[in-house]
């Protein structure tokens, strides 16, 4: 999500800590759509971390289930991150040929294929 924290639009006051000013800039300058995707990304990251912790700390017993769950988190994160990169107006110049609608269609198709494989693994 590095793109989420693009340069703040205005200079923060010197009394604020840099992290706080960074958060404030993100909060104020990011559109609602991107924030929605960011929320989804955070959700995927947390899910993946918890599943990974479970595998490391407790057991990997139904290993195929772990693979399916973890891979779905990672794969969906990648797909959502690329969607976010392509629909971000700030990256307009980089994706001239890719309209946001086209990016969403790619996202939907990639997600369906990913979910097909995930369910295949789930056992």
């Amino acid at each position: 999500m590095p793109a989420a924290k693009i340069a703040p639009s205005k200079t923060a006051g010197s009394s604020q800590s840099p992290l706080l000013s960074l958060w404030k800039a993100y909060y104020e300058s990011t559109s609602t759509r991107l924030k929605t995707i960011d929320a989804f990304l955070v959700f995927l990251m947390l899910s993946g971390i918890i599943q990974f912790l479970y595998c490391v700390l407790i057991t990997n017993f139904p290993f195929n289930a772990f693979l399916a769950g973890f891979a779905s988190c990672v794969g969906q994160f990648v797909l959502a991150a690329s969607l976010r990169a392509q629909v971000n107006p700030a990256n307009r110049s980089e994706f001239k040929d890719v309209s946001p609608e086209r990016a969403f269609a790619d996202f939907a198709l990639g997600s369906i294929v990913l979910h097909f494989f995930v369910y295949n693994f789930l056992g």
Partner: peptide, 27 residues
């Protein structure tokens, strides 16, 4: 290989509900 005790499974199931709470809260 054995499944872990019910209690441990339940704890981690609850933990996995946490991201959903975060997601719904953020949305």
């Amino acid at each position: 290989q054995k499944v872990p005790p019910k209690f441990v499974s339940a704890v981690f199931t609850l933990l996995l509900a946490a991201p959903w709470v975060v997601l719904l809260g953020l949305l």
